[in-house]
Simulated scan of single mutants.
Amino acid sequence: MPSDETRAPVDVVVLVSGSGTLLQALIDAAADSTYGVRIAAVGADRDGIAGLERAERAGIPTFVCRVKDYASRDEWDAALTERTAAYDPGLVVSAGFLKLVGAAFLARFGGRYLNSHNALLPSFPGIHGPRDALEYGVRIAGATLFVVDEGVDTGAIVAQCAVPVLDDDTEESLTERIKQAERPQLVEYVGRMAREGFVVDGRRVRLGRA
């Protein structure tokens, strides 16, 4: 049985929709052979984004599945599933991927598809977490890493980090400060889940091999 030091890295597919700052944090971490992750491919739902350029500069294969290229959302989901499955990933990570996957994708990757959200779930799900937190008047915001399920930001939580909300915060300043905390959390836990293994048990995610 190989030790943790000799265990082969886990292949990970990262999905992006924009600038790819979370992706870049993972690329940088994976350059260390002890991290335990090999980014096998980067997928996107649109062309011409900085996230794809980051992957290409790092020599990582890329693919694009645009919703508008398919007759239905189900067909898009099936295509995304097959393109992702071609790399046989042990984990799939949504790093700012702004599309909800469907039944086919979750049937294939359920329990090992991770998403990082810029709010402290279950509060403020959806695409405007920092804005909604500011409007509600909370004093603590943050980021949540979770295992994606059929709901919208409802999956079992892997990790959370807290970020204070300042009196002069705008949506932009709070979003950026959350990103600064979100990136190291994502890097830490993707690496740990790859190296140590993990089990999803109801609402609990436990690190370590069964």
Rank of each mutant, 00 (worst) to 15 (best):
Y87C: 01
L145S: 07
D153T: 09
D168F: 00
A104D: 15
D149E: 04
D69C: 11
Y70A: 08
S72K: 07
L106T: 03
T81L: 06
E82I: 00
V67S: 13
P130L: 09
A86R: 15
W76T: 03
A58S: 13
A162Y: 05
A55K: 11
C161G: 13
G51H: 06
Y113T: 04
D132K: 07
R108A: 15
R54G: 06
L106E: 05
I49E: 00
S173I: 06
L166N: 12
Y70E: 04
S173C: 05
G110E: 09
D132H: 12
V92N: 08
R66T: 11
T170D: 04
L166Q: 13
V64C: 12
D169R: 12
L121E: 15
R108Q: 15
L121A: 14
G48T: 05
V147S: 10
P164T: 05
F97T: 13
L106Y: 05
C161I: 15
L80M: 15
D47F: 01
A143D: 05
Y113W: 00
D77I: 07
L80G: 03
H128R: 14
A71T: 03
C65T: 14
V93R: 06
V67C: 03
V147T: 06
A78F: 02
D74R: 14
G48A: 13
L52F: 09
V163W: 04
F146C: 01
L91E: 01
P61S: 11
G142N: 05
A104W: 11
G110N: 08
D149N: 11
A103N: 09
L145D: 04
L80T: 06
S116N: 07
A107Y: 02
Y136E: 14
D77A: 07
A141V: 00
L121T: 14
E150W: 10
D153R: 07
A78L: 11
A71Q: 02
A104T: 15
A143W: 01
A104S: 15
A55Y: 01
V67Y: 08
T62R: 10
L121V: 14
G102C: 12
E171T: 14
V152P: 02
P130F: 09
S173F: 08
Y113D: 00
F109Q: 15
S94F: 15
F109T: 12
Y113E: 00
G155E: 10
I140S: 03
F146S: 06
E150M: 12
